[in-house]
Design a binder for these strands. Structure first.
Lengths: 381, 381
DNA sequence: ATGCCTGTTTAAAACGTTTGAACTATCGGT
DNA sequence: ACCGATAGTTCAAACGTTTTAAACAGGCAT
């Protein structure tokens, strides 16, 4: 047993153990092209020694020398939001075969941390960065640094192509339309809507999609039944807000047979609030979410929602990045700043049990919370 | 503007820009003790230059030199399991102030990946490893390598002190007892149980806790109402199994007024199954989960469950590791293999809406699925 | 003997930091 | 005029790799 000074087994240790030079050992173990010229017997002896000592090459030294970290920084705004996880998973899946490691960092929805995280990523010499940001993230001087150091970057769930950053996100307009069309086809005419926070990117286009689909279906919204989430902090806050709004809906006395919520968590809050008031879902009222996040699938009733292909979005982002890295690599030319890419992926309606045709006549157990419809309903086509 | 060969700004660049030597620049920017002796004017000029160029020290070079990676490898068995996230969060929280970065890796419940991940962690020279493993993870030769290289390790959610690895996990026995006692205090006597998979660590002690509490309360289980999950693969499988078992429960014709599920996802499956069969929760039947995972809180009705303080568990693990690293650091002595630490943290009952006293007399909308109780019920003390 | 292949192996430089030791001035004291 | 201090700055070596170019040993033809 060799007495090592530091804790880890190094090339020197292996070299000493098998009697060859460091160079030879390196060539063999890294399977460099030169290893073709190494005598098979030598190869064998080197490998045996390495295995015996439990040698693992030092990624730091290797990266330092090769100027490649084989790492992509992934900055998630909040890992405890079930929205993030599938995206991260997708990124991982795409990175795996290319032997890249995601350096996953959770900004915990704190602006201050965001900066620190970006610094980390830059210091660790990530070859690319993916930012998962559904929330407000203003530009920071760090962003300039990312540029300055020529690190390619993709943002998920927000369109920043206008600032030169490639973006992959869901087609919010189509998604909003999808949700509304589903409700109108079921026969709903009086629909309450909870819009997203003003500062959040998705809010506006999603609402636009809803409105245009509503226009086409001849549906008008009762302004008293249109709500808007305040800026949201953390995934539980959506639930709380939904709960609150559902109570307001019932309290304001306007008739409605469906609620279209901004996202799944808000929708789940609405489900809770309505249920507690004795409204049965979907018999008395339908509830729709958006995102198709894990809790939406395991809730009862299962939440009808508009699915974002989060995993695919993550994969897309990762693949763009890999491609950018690869194409810049050989020429060593400057970043080759092409125009930023944009992918608006198509959302998909997932029908579960929380949506159904509106009630024909209202039951008596509703204490007048849901005023009777004044128009006879048409069954969905 | 200096023309750099590689993409990143280095000390040399800064040195050239401000006219001082690399050493001086390094001393200033790393705020080494020697920087006391540097003239304030120099300091100023160096800092300005660094900022202007967007310099970030190269963590790789730094680590190589200092032999410290400031990194803890975190190997999660499956990030898409909501069980993992709070633990990871706790780890992060504990690591932050010590300026350690978690190197988060997701093994995606695949054995093969597990090995690759461990290799990654070793190569990246993590100074410690935390394994989050609620699932079967047999010993692998990698574990030996971890040893050989003297990397301290903690495992969360499994007791491996017998193999010399420090462990932090919930007191499953106490948790099981807590759940059962809650039901018995509400007056339930006929309780269906879904036990954990045979190969999973938590299953046995949790069941033991349930049994001993049942004995004390004078409750006996109907063997036909005791189920056992098969080995589980992925977080959705728990839900599916719960759904299936709930149907079996109803089909077998034995009376029960409560279901005690192995974990929250299984419980949510049960809720779905019972609800679909027209059983109202909690009026006709109570359902209990375990873990207090995010979906349990946002489901309707909110799931009564036994909470694992996951975040605290993560913090505990991280703190042990930091301590081990710190205490080994100065002496450069051998790993100082003390006996492994063990922390069984206390679980906590979280009462939500899915539990209530058993029904006095059974409603008629149950189609005989829940046969009538033969004993008059006592209200919980 | 010298020169030139061919097939193996190695020396040495480089990657970007940090740091103990060495180098300059400058100055007060003898 | 010389010796020490002291403040300010720089040299050079090291961390563990990878890789270019060179060294080395035989064998064969000149």
């Amino acid at each position: 047993m060799v007495q090592r000074k530091s804790g880890h087994v190094t090339l020197v240790d292996v070299a000493r153990a098998c009697g060859f030079s460091v160079s030879t050992v390196s060539i063999v173990l890294s399977e460099a092209p030169l290893s073709q010229n190494i005598a098979p017997s030598t190869r064998e002896r080197v490998q045996v020694a390495a295995r015996q000592l439990g040698y693992h090459p030092d990624a730091y030294a290797r990266s330092l020398r090769s100027r490649r970290s084989q790492t992509i920084g992934v900055l998630a705004y909040d890992l405890s939001d079930p929205f993030c996880v599938p995206i991260v998973r997708g990124i991982q899946a795409a990175l795996q075969p290319a032997c890249f490691l995601p350096l996953l960092i959770d900004a915990q929805t704190k602006r201050s941390l965001f900066d620190a995280c970006m610094t980390m990523i830059l210091e660790r010499r990530a070859e690319g960065v993916i930012v998962i940001a559904s929330w407000v993230f203003e530009e920071t001087n760090l962003l300039a640094d990312v540029r300055k150091n020529g690190v390619p970057m993709v943002i998920v769930s927000r369109d920043m192509t206008d600032r030169g950053i490639s973006s992959v996100l869901v087609d919010n307009e189509a998604g909003g339309a999808l949700a509304l069309r589903h409700l109108s086809q079921l026969g709903h005419r009086r629909i309450a809507v909870i819009r997203g926070p003003e500062k959040m990117f998705d809010s506006e286009p999603r609402w636009a999609g809803i409105q245009s689909a509503a226009r086409k279906a001849g549906i008008r919204f009762d302004p008293k039944l249109v709500f808007q989430l305040p800026g949201l902090a953390g995934p539980d806050s959506g639930f709380e807000e939904g709960l609150l709004f559902s109570r307001q809906m019932l309290a304001c006395g306007r008739p409605f047979t469906a609620v279209l919520a901004f996202d799944d968590l808000t929708a789940l809050g609405v489900v809770r609030g309505l249920t507690e008031a004795g409204v049965r879902i979907p018999d008395d009222c339908s509830v729709l979410g958006f995102d198709d996040v894990f809790p939406a699938a395991v809730a009862t009733p299962g939440l009808t929602t508009v699915r974002q292909p989060l995993r695919d979005m993550g994969m897309q982002a990762a693949e763009w990045l890999l491609h950018a890295i690869e194409s810049r690599d050989p020429g060593a030319g400057k970043p080759l700043r092409k125009s930023p890419l944009l992918s608006k992926v198509r959302p998909e309606l997932v029908v579960r049990q929380s949506s159904a045709p509106p009630p024909r006549n209202l039951g008596k157990n509703q204490k007048g919370a849901l005023p009777a419809l004044d128009t006879p309903l048409r069954q969905g086509r």
